[in-house]
Structures are given as C-alpha cells and as structure tokens.
Design a binder for these strands. Structure first.
Lengths: 207, 207, 207, 207
DNA sequence: TATGAATGAGAATTCATTCAT
DNA sequence: TATGAATGAATTCTCATTCAT
C-alpha cells in the first residue's frame, strides 16, 4: 500500500514497491531494537538507505510507519496461518499447527516477535484499532479451531473458546518474548516450549 | 526512598513519605493512561499536585520514576502473594490462589495492571533488570507451588515448572490486559476467566 | 556589613558577624573553584555550614554575594597595601613593596587570587562598578608611587603613570593567575617572577 | 568543521561553511556582550538569523560553540602574527610588531578582544586545554623573539624569556581589556599605550 | 521523486529564591 | 533567626516534519 501515485510504468511501480518495503523492513529492525518511542526516524532512514525526507513520501508520519508495519506483518502472519491450517480440519492437528506456527515465527523472525511482544499491547491500549483488527483475525482462526474441536466432541464444551484463545495467545506471546530476549537463545528451547504447551492444552482442553 | 535529607523530625519524615507516595501514585495514573514515553513530567506533577521541580527532589529523573514505581509496586505484589499463599501448602489450592490473586489485582487496581502489562516487557527489553528481578521473584513463588505439586504426585512430572510458570504468567497477564483495556469491563468476566483458566491448568497439569 | 538588624546584644552582633563571614568565605572557596556562573548557592551554603535560605538573610541574592565578596576582599587588600606602603616614601622601595605585596597575596591566598583573576574582568565588563571602584583605589595607590617617582626625578617623566599602573597590574595579575592555576606551584617561582618584574620595571621606568 | 555530511556539491559545501561562520560570528557578538554564561543559545541563533536547532547541526552543544570559537579565532590570530613577524628578524622591530599587532587586534575587533580578555582565563581554569594550546603557541612566537634578542646581545640575558612573555601578555591583555570596555574609546589612546609599553619594555629588557 | 538542511515546538531538568514552620 | 522543602521560570537540546533544490 505505497502512497506515491506514479503508477505509470511497471518499472516505476516496482521500484516504489521495493523502496516502500525497504523502509518498512528498516522500521522493524529499528523498532524492535529500541522500541518505537526511542526509535529515530533518521535511524530508520539510514538503515533503509534513504534520506529522512523520503520516508514522508511513503508514510504520513512516524505513527503511520508503525501502523503500516503492523498491518503488513500481521496480514502476512494471518495469511501464513491460513495456509498452514488449510491441509487439515482435525482439531488436535490444527492446534499443534497453530502453536508450531507461532513459535516458528519467533525462531525465524525474532525481530518481528520482539516488536510484536513489546509494541502490540501499547498500541492496543493507545492507538486506534489497526492492529487490533488483525490480531482479532489471527485469534479468530484459533477460535474456529477450538470451536471445531468442541463440535467434534474432542474439546471440553464447558470452556469458552473466546477465553481460551486469549489464554493461548498470552502464553505463546510471553514465552516467545522471553526467548527472543535471551541473547543465548536456542531454537531447541522454544521447540520444547511448544511440546509442553501442546501437552498442557491438549490435556487441559480435552473433553 | 525519598532523597531529601531532613529526616530529623517524625513529622518531617511522614510528610516526605506522603509526598513521595503521592508522586508515585500520580506516575502510575499517568503512565497507565498514556504510556511512559508519552507521559509528561509536568502532567505527573499536576496530577500529584506538586510543582514540576518537586519531582526531582524525590526522583533523579523520569527513568528513576519508572524504576521506583516498578520496585514499589512489584515488591508489594510479591509480599501480597506471599501472604496469600501462606495459609496453604496444598498445590491445587495454592494454584487457585495464585490465579485469583493475579486477577483480583486487575480488578482492584486496573491502572497498575495496565501499567504492568504495557511497560513490563518494554522495560525488560531495554532497561536494566530492576523490574526483571521482582518479576523473577513473583514467578519463583509460582514455580515453587508447581514443584510442590509434582512432588506430591498431583502434577505431571513431565512438564517443566519453569516453562509452565511463564505460560501461566503470559495467559494471566494477557487476559488481564485485554480486560483492563475494555472500557465496559465487568469483574464477573474476569472471574469467569479465572475459573476457566484454573480448570484448564488443573486438567492440563494433572499427573 | 551584615544586613540583619538585630544588633541588640553584643553577643548577637558577634554571632551574626561570624556567620556573615563564614558565608563569604564559603563563597570565595566555591567561586574560585567553579567560577561564579557554575557555582551553586546550595554548595556555598553547604560549605558555609548553613541552610540555603540562611544565605538570603545575609545577602540579597547571588549577585550580591559576588559584589560583597569583591568589596570585602578588595577593601582589605587596599588597606593592607596602604599599611605596607606606610613605612616608606622612597619610590623604588615602594615599587618593590607593591610587587611583593601583590605576589604575596597570591602565595598566601591562592583562592582569592584565582577568584580575582577569573571574575574581575567579567565583573568589570558586565556588572556595576562595585569592584571597579576598589580596583581604582588599589591602582590609585600604585599611581601615587609612580608619580612620586617622577617628581623625585627617579622615573621617566615621559611615561604616563595612568598607563603604567595598568601595565603593571596586567603583568602581575596574569602571572599570578598562571601560577595559581598550576597544581604544582612553588612559591619560589612566583618570587622569581617578582624579581624579574621588578628589574624590568625599575630599568624600564628609570629616568 | 561543520558536522553535516553533504559535502557532495561545491555549492553545498560553500553554503554550509558560510552558515557555520555566521553562527560563529554571532557567538562572538553575543558572548562578548554578555559573557558565555549569560549568553543564550536562542540569542546566538537569532543574531545568526537561524533557528535554535540549526546551531546543533553545526555544533555539539553550547560548550562546543565556545571551544570552536576559541580555536578558530586564536588560530587566525596566530597565523596573522606569524605573517606579521615574517619580514623581520630584528628583535627590537619584532617586539614593536608584536605589541602593535596585539593592539591593532583590539582596535579592529573589539568584540574579539573583549571575548578573549573575559573568557580566556575562565576557560583556562575550567575547561580542557583547547584554548591553552593556542595561547601557548601565540606566546611561543613572542618568546622566540625575546630569545633572539638575548642571542643578539640586545636583551638582558638575566631575564627569563618565559616570564617576560607572560608579563607582556598580561600588560597587553589588561590594557586592551580596559580600553575595549570604555564606551568612549579612542584608538589614539591605545596607540599611546603601545608607545609607552614599547618604551618600557625596550628600556627594561635592554642588555 | 529524492534529498537532507533547516525548522521550531516541546520536554526534561536545574537552581535561585521564597516561605511555612 | 534558621531551616530546607517547594516552587516554577528559564534554558538547553532533541527530533519529527517540512520544503527548497
């Protein structure tokens, strides 16, 4: 969703798209390292290899950069999860996929995870619902799996799926946040978390 | 720990302590409403009913205010939990107490919960370990309960208590954060969360 | 010249005088160490062993402290020189006394010399003439010696005594300033300066 | 040495150099009028015709402005004296040139003289040796002339050139300071000072 | 489009001075 | 008188944003 309008040439559009992306990537890097408030636009620009002013050709302001980053990343995460869940409709398998997907995210993109863990709540509390919507969509996918499990008689019907999705998210988000924050992090540790978490939930949710 | 030296008179000490507390309370109010970065010292001062400069008689700078707030509040929370857990050594009861204690905190002091939920991770990531230590102590109390449960043969020994404590914290912290952020929040909802969470964990942890 | 009025008792006056002096001495210490602008009233108070507010019972404000210090010290210096010059009316002897007196000042009270060297010009440039007057009086004593020397036919009548007094002051003030600023200063070095300066002037001024 | 990086174009460099100079000139004006401590960055900015923030694109902070001003000006003064002394190696002529050069400085740039007279000592006492080095270089040029005079048998060998240079500097600096501080100053007065000073030293230094 | 120098609003912090005790 | 906590005006400096090139 680059703002600049020159879409005349194919070439032009591609170049714009590419620079837009570069700025967004740079934002993620800087925001995850320093946190949004401490991050300087000039540092984002330097990281992206563009001039400070250029950022304002693609984004309205610093907040817009944050919002766009959330939108872009959360959308992709949602799409990725949708794809990952497509092959199966078996709730237990799906639950395992959900957990694995979230943990893999942390393993493969620690910056993104650090960013989400740190900024999501602050954004949820003080900003409009840009991020909230996407998060709702993400958790919505989870909830559907849980509901399916209840329908299939696999998951305890007394448990509220809308509460469970938040419990699961909190658990995953926090454990990933702790892991990502550890300079000597080892993916094996996070995989272990996945197994334990799965066991806890599978037993806990069991009908 | 107010800085001013005049501790000569009983009266003097009390007044100082009182103002120190007033500033800290005001910080909590403002920090939880706007987030630390957006909070202005002048607003904290106004909320506390003191002049801007007065804050610097009690705290070194804005960061010190944040750190002191963490220390003070987390210490009290730790002490409160210790007290709440004292009466029982039965793991299942203790687990219920832990969950109830955390949720009651949110119900009785939503500002504090909002503050912790939003700022704790950011602080953990970028600040020294002022907050980390207290959090470790808090989760340490939880872990001891889980370990006791394993020893008593009540909790599944295959589950890592050090992972479980983080899972539980993430779950509680996030659900409380969501609840606190809801302008139409109803304590009953959070109590419901408590019951469901307890059930999930009791079953999930069962040996 | 303490301001407080309670002069009722002999005892009261003495105590006041004593505290006034203590504050002034503390000012000299602090001003000479940090310079007037960097000096903090609270540090002067601490050095004097009084409360911050007490200073304002004796001095109108920070500037008044500076001015009073100049007045007090320069007056004493003037009186001291007058006394030192009393025994002789022989110009060459008097000139030697003048130089020795100024250098001895630096040797015996380096703080005062540092203070004067650093603050006198700034004060002369930006403040009222409190200091100027006393300096004029000091240099006036010098000029009378130079004039006497011309009258006696010892000093060259073509040289302007009003220029010479400034030249001599600049020379003495700067060399003392350099010496005082040297952490490894040795009084012998300054005495050597005195001899050389005397020789230069005696020859240079000779009729 | 402007900080901004864009040195790409000849044009760009020139404009930057020009603005750097404008700010430095404004500093001199303001510092010499009020003294460094009383000078406000905002006033320097206004005098320079730039925004407050612009100053920080060229200088690290207020102290850096002072230091840079010293460096720039004292360097130029040193270079100027070197040039002025080049034509002659005759000590008496050289001495006259030294004195004339210093006094001409005051006549042609009273602000600079006021600034140096007032701030040099304070800086020497409290700041690093930015200014000290350049002053040492300046007085070093004087000392070489005095030494040459001794070698040539013109100047008294009993006099220490390292003391004499300080005496001369003090004399010149102070007389210039007094003159510059006089609102009704007449260059003729300072020329008279020059003649008298020269006569005093020529006679005083004579072998 | 891209640049990056310039802007200036805004915020933290300091400290001389006041004033209730 | 003496105290020292409280005040708040004043100042430095930062950095998101603009705009001339």
């Amino acid at each position: 969703m680059p703002r600049p309008k020159n879409l005349d040439t194919e070439e032009g559009r591609r170049r714009r798209e590419e620079k837009y992306q570069r700025i967004l990537d740079a934002s993620l890097t800087v925001f995850s390292q320093k946190g949004f408030a401490e991050a300087k636009i000039s540092e984002v620009a330097e990281t992206a290899g563009v001039a400070d002013g250029t950022i304002y050709l693609y984004f309205k302001n610093k907040d817009d950069l944050l919002i766009s980053l959330f939108e872009e990343k959360l959308e992709a995460i949602n799409a990725g999860l949708r794809e990952a869940l497509a092959p199966t409709s078996e709730p237990l398998q799906a639950l395992a996929i959900i957990i694995k997907y979230h943990l893999d995210l942390a393993i493969h993109d620690p910056s993104l995870t650090a960013f989400i863990t740190i900024e999501l709540r602050r954004s949820a509390a003080f900003m409009k619902d840009y991020a909230k919507e996407q998060l709702a969509e993400y958790l919505g996918q989870w909830q559907r799996v849980l509901q399916q499990g209840q329908q299939d008689g696999i998951f305890n019907e007394n448990l509220s799926t809308s509460i469970m999705k938040h419990i699961l998210f909190g658990a995953l988000d926090h454990t990933c946040g702790v892991w990502v924050n550890n300079p000597n992090r080892d993916p094996a540790d996070l995989r272990e978390v996945g197994e334990q978490l799965t066991e806890l939930f599978v037993r806990g949710l069991a009908a």
